[in-house]
């Protein structure tokens, strides 16, 4: 399962399919990030029960690794898997978004 996601992620990056997310869905994802991820990471993503999701602390991870965390969660921690609600393509888009300097 994990491998399958990883393969999808790698294929996605190489085909640059990330740009294909519809602007409406992008807005939805940013809203989700702010309000639903925000319940653990802080609405401004400065950290809470979960760590800050800001470009500097996230430097140590690649976008693919972060997308993996978003999709599968981190077992043993409160970080839940979001794959029922977010596609691999969308997770990668979110991860890149988090690594860039844009604040939601």
């Amino acid at each position: 399962m994990l491998k399958a996601i990883l393969v999808t992620l790698i294929t996605l990056t190489s085909t640059a399919a990330v740009a294909d997310i519809h602007p409406d869905r992008q807005t939805e994802l940013i809203y989700l990030l702010k309000h639903d991820c925000g319940s653990c990471h802080g609405m401004r993503l400065q950290g809470g029960l979960g760590p800050a999701l800001k470009p500097v602390p996230l430097k140590r991870w690649t976008a693919e690794q972060l997308a993996m965390t978003i999709l599968s969660g981190r077992p043993g921690t409160p970080m839940p898997p979001w794959k029922p609600f977010i596609s691999p393509q969308e997770a990668l888009w979110l991860a890149k978004h988090l690594k860039s300097e844009i604040t939601p």
Binding site: D36, C40, L49, P80, P81
Partner: peptide
């Protein structure tokens, strides 16, 4: 089962 929790 350790179900995921989406909001504490």
């Amino acid at each position: 089962k350790k179900l995921p929790v989406y909001k504490m």
